[in-house]
């Protein structure tokens, strides 16, 4: 699942994941509340990974992360923070707030796909992708 207010990013993300594996189901949400709404509506299964954009209006990615981690039903889902620029400070914050990792948004489609694939593989028992910070 990707939570991002930017529709372009949601679109590219969906395309990229489909390119990686057509069997992977991608759910998207445009805001924190929308995401929670959708997650609460999932009765049979929860997403394997949640990608969460930091820079969102009203409820920021950080606030959203807090909400997710406060929800006992959702707290176990790994959350990868998604950010345009990756500062050391933000990496540290992500780690402290219980995120599984932090990934920078790519300005190249190929680069995006490569990173996403690595992260998805990791959470299916693969190697940690380069430039990814995980816990």
């Amino acid at each position: 699942m990707l939570i991002d207010d930017d529709s372009d990013d949601r679109e590219i993300f969906g395309e990229a994941v489909y390119d990686i594996g057509s069997s992977i189901i991608v759910e998207t949400a445009w805001s924190a509340s929308n995401a929670l709404e959708k997650l609460n509506a999932m009765t049979t299964s929860l997403p394997d990974i949640i990608f969460l954009d930091i820079n969102m209006p009203i409820v920021s990615g950080w606030d959203c992360l807090t909400l997710l981690k406060q929800d006992p039903a959702l707290s176990s889902v790994p959350v990868v923070m998604f950010s345009t620029s990756a500062h050391e400070k933000e990496k540290l914050t992500a780690q402290q707030m219980g995120a599984a990792g932090l990934m920078t948004k790519r300005s190249s489609y190929e680069s995006l796909k490569a990173h996403l694939r690595a992260i998805i593989d990791y959470f299916h028992g693969g190697e940690l992708p380069a430039g990814f910070t995980g816990s």
């Binding site: 930017d6 372009d8 590219i12 820079n55 345009t84 620029s85 500062h87 948004k105 790519r106 300005s107 190249s108 489609y109 190929e110 995006l112």
Partner: peptide, 21 residues
């Protein structure tokens, strides 16, 4: 500078890149 400004540039870069490829 670090966030908002970078976003549209990134997209230009990304989409123009996709056009090319």
């Amino acid at each position: 500078t670090s966030h908002d400004l970078k976003e549209p540039v990134r997209k230009i870069k990304l989409f123009s890149g996709r056009l090319q490829t």
